[in-house]
Design a protein around this nucleic acid. Sequence first.
DNA 1: CGACAACTTGACGGGCGTCAACCGGAGTGG
DNA 2: CCACTCCGGTTGACGCCCGTCAAGTTGTCG
Lengths: 244, 244
Amino acid sequence: MVADAHALAPFVGKLKLTSTISAKSETAILALPHTRRVVRQGNVFIAEGRGASTCCFIVSGFACRQKLLAHGSRQILNLYFRGDGVDLQSALLPWADHTVLALTDLDAAFVPVQAIRELIKDHPEVGEAMWREALLDASIQREWTVNVGRRDGRARIAHFLCELHYRQQQVGLGDSRTIELPISQEQIGDCTALTAVHVNRMLSSLRSDGVLQARRGTCSITDWDRLRMIAGFDTAYLYPPLAA
Amino acid sequence: MVADAHALAPFVGKLKLTSTISAKSETAILALPHTRRVVRQGNVFIAEGRGASTCCFIVSGFACRQKLLAHGSRQILNLYFRGDGVDLQSALLPWADHTVLALTDLDAAFVPVQAIRELIKDHPEVGEAMWREALLDASIQREWTVNVGRRDGRARIAHFLCELHYRQQQVGLGDSRTIELPISQEQIGDCTALTAVHVNRMLSSLRSDGVLQARRGTCSITDWDRLRMIAGFDTAYLYPPLAA
DNA sequence: CGACAACTTGACGGGCGTCAACCGGAGTGG
DNA sequence: CCACTCCGGTTGACGCCCGTCAAGTTGTCG
């Protein structure tokens, strides 16, 4: 993994995908006070029901939002990686409705909420970009609702992989036919509301159809058109930059 | 239905539930240029893939966001009613990732996107309140993902009803034991990712357990504690006002 | 009173969950 | 270098929740 010169640079890069960021705004973001540290795999760094005094910006590694139910089952709500600002919402809401935890070791920058609020106040352009980012996050959440609600197991996993590939391409992870997937089949199941066993069956099915190959930590797509068709994948909800 | 003196008053009321709105800001919101009109049941007023030049604020009636899949099935993503500002996101995103349609006849105010953008610019406090509103919407979306992903049919419908009741209470719809539910069982199914037949069975089950009664257009809850327990309902994700 | 939509109920089947056994690679300790 | 352990992946058997199909009932509106 490349050691980034600046821990907030990937985040700025992400914002620029959907918003215009002036040089002045960029400087202001990079000037945010922050501490950069490693979060160990399995660590919860935002806990459901509690407020947060810092926001987190991921440089490398994987994190997820999740909710646990009384019965013991869990639903993963989204995955986050390089460039993602996790829980900017902490700046505006009094507590978190969900948990955020590290799925792998994480290299991340933590910024005090107060500094974010001041940044937004002094640079409305940045506030708008962050707001837009939150709307994109919500759009992804809607698609996940559709995914678990209305697609069968096979299509569900295919769609999950398509989205992941697209989002990783945007921030320079994986390559044109590879997805970084450093999570277990059980965790894929918690993303797609399936059991680990059924995830395994569906992955086998996709594999034997020659659509993909899965190794530890990565997934190679061998037939993109097929996968997209199985998934019914359309990038519109990810708001691809018009000037691409 | 009460004829509101001002079409945007319910929206201001909704904002005040989670944000502090100064008298000056309130005046500015109410001064927004708008046209008030009735949208007929079944009308699509925001179409997937297209941009919108106006935002919609509901005074009375029910609307929903939805997505259609290639196979023909649909997922309803959220319901909207009195006080809800539908698709403020149109002000920040170039197109809609979903469709919004009227489930009943709607009394609503339409405000030009441009006017919203100017309002936000001149009154950052309002921008923040709207941003917070968007975050709350996203929180609800997460819970819907959990609902269709991890609860069985009975709990799913129970949770759907609990949320609806809570949100309606907040804006003065229904009463302490009544939910306004002017939608068909098929539409409830599209909200909960079930078929109309199964919705019917689960409602029957809840009815025969003495938890609720359902009539055309309304639903009476006869045993709230029971329903909440079946649903595993916790209001935290709806961010109840602290000063209640 | 006829038409139509929505609700209701029953029979049947399939997708996915559950349980359980086995395999395979990575790390650990002797 | 080889046992041992452990976690995750793999595969099969079986069962249930919910989808599907179909028929019948109710309610509303003309």
